[in-house]
């Protein structure tokens, strides 16, 4: 089996599992909608215009909701030695990592689009002049986040503390993603010209590439026994 086929097999397996149980998707989706409801009451909308803080709230919802789902990447397979089976398969470890990350990415990308839609609906926001660029910003940000999240989900699920450890490991690393992501999203929501966010997009892309490469290289050291 070629490398891509191996990655594809793992992505397909994970997504199939998810569509059968719908555990993580429902959890993350409900989290997104409920956070938006809570934000509505936490923020005094007569004092702060929603469009001024929407970008920050959207990204924080994606980060918190994403951790909720990504943290459970390895839970289901921890039972009955299923994950050992995957590791013992001839697929190289980095293919396993890329497959897991891509499956997580697809899930979280769907959730992040949902988050944006929910915020549009609840806070009466406009999508801005270039929704396709916004979708690209979300895509790159989520990819970087999911790469680090999947790697450290493997780390934290191997410790006694489990998911409690995940935010401590991941949050300091996420600062670039949050800064570039909210910077670009805020300006796109305000219909600023696309040229203003090209720098942010480039940095988000570089961050995603770094995170993906680091994960693919280091994952084997996390799962080896």
């Amino acid at each position: 089996m070629s490398y891509l086929r191996q990655v594809q097999a793992i992505v397909w397996k994970d997504l199939l599992l998810e569509f059968r149980t719908k555990e993580r998707l429902v959890a993350m989706g409900a989290f997104a909608v409920l956070s938006a409801v809570l934000f509505n009451y936490a923020v005094d909308r007569t004092a702060v215009r929603p469009q001024d803080i929407a970008a920050g709230l959207i990204w924080m919802t994606i980060v918190f909701g994403g951790l909720l789902g990504v943290g459970r990447t390895f839970h289901l397979e921890a039972q009955d030695g299923a994950f050992e089976g995957i590791l013992m398969s001839p697929a190289p470890k980095d293919a396993v990592f890329l497959g897991k990350t891509l499956a997580n990415f697809i899930l979280l990308y769907v959730v992040s689009l949902l988050v944006v839609a929910v915020f549009m609906l609840f806070f009466g926001l406009e999508l801005g002049a270039s929704p396709a660029v916004l979708a690209l910003v979300l895509c790159l940000g989520v990819l970087g986040f999911v790469s680090l999240g999947t790697l450290f989900a493997a780390v934290s699920s191997g410790t006694r503390m489990g998911e409690t450890l995940l935010p401590i490991l991941v949050f300091p690393l996420l600062v670039p993603m949050v800064i570039f992501g909210t910077g670009a999203t805020g300006r796109l929501l305000a219909s600023r010209p696309v040229a203003e966010v090209v720098g942010d997009i480039r940095m988000l892309g570089a961050f995603a590439v770094m995170a993906l490469a680091a994960g693919a290289l280091l994952f084997r050291f996390v799962v080896e026994d």
Binding site: L151, V155, L169, P172, L173, P176, M203, A214, L218
Partner: peptide, 13 residues
């Protein structure tokens, strides 16, 4: 792994 990823992330931060 934590230390290495941290070091790689430093330029971005």
């Amino acid at each position: 792994v934590v230390a290495i990823v941290g070091a790689l992330d430093i330029p971005f931060i």
